[in-house]
């Protein structure tokens, strides 16, 4: 239904080249900023290099709040909090998902080292948080047991 109205709109504007290119360019501009290679990476290290993180050192100043046992892998609440100063980004990865990278949060200006969201996990796996601060990367991990996976059909 929605696609139909979209097609109609595009066809109607077909004569006006400017309108068409403007309409088609905006989603592409968004895609350019999105780190596709990092999200399609099949391993944690590939995903991190896609985000421009080389090596990360383990840090005790990152706290991951996630359940020990997640009954439903489709909805696993994860909270990452860090006391490291000058945090520029926080990435959340699930080591054993087909594509480990779940989300990357770029923090700017007055933002604090805190993010929370809910992710899907296909099976029991460590959840990894990678914090970038002052050009260095720090990481922490927490094992989450999943009883029902959340990535299949």
């Amino acid at each position: 239904m929605q696609r139909r109205t979209f097609m109609k709109g595009t066809l109607a504007a077909g004569g006006v080249a400017v309108a068409v290119s403007a309409g088609l360019l905006s989603p592409r501009a968004v895609l350019a900023a999105w780190p596709k290679s990092a999200f399609e990476a099949k391993s944690v290290s590939d995903a991190l290099s896609g985000l421009g993180v080389g090596t990360s050192s383990a840090s005790g100043d990152i706290k991951i709040k996630a359940p020990d046992i997640a009954e439903n892998g489709a909805v696993v609440p994860v909270q990452v909090k860090t006391s490291i100063a000058g945090v520029t980004s926080i990435a959340i990865l699930t080591e054993k998902n087909a594509n480990p990278l779940a989300a990357n949060f770029n923090l700017k200006g007055s933002a604090k080292g805190f993010v929370a969201t809910r992710i899907k996990m296909s099976k029991t796996s460590p959840v990894i948080a990678v914090v970038k601060a002052g050009g260095k990367a720090y990481s922490a991990r927490k094992e989450v047991k999943v009883t029902i996976g959340g990535c299949g059909g």
């Binding site: 780190p35 489709a74 696993v76 989300a103 770029n106 933002a111 993010v115 809910r118």
Partner: peptide, 21 residues
């Protein structure tokens, strides 16, 4: 203050929380 990049591994009907000073 926050620009997040998400993959499809974020749950349906997503919840997001962040803090700023």
């Amino acid at each position: 203050v926050m620009l997040a990049e998400w993959g499809p591994a974020v749950s349906k009907n997503p919840y997001v929380s962040f803090q700023f000073a």
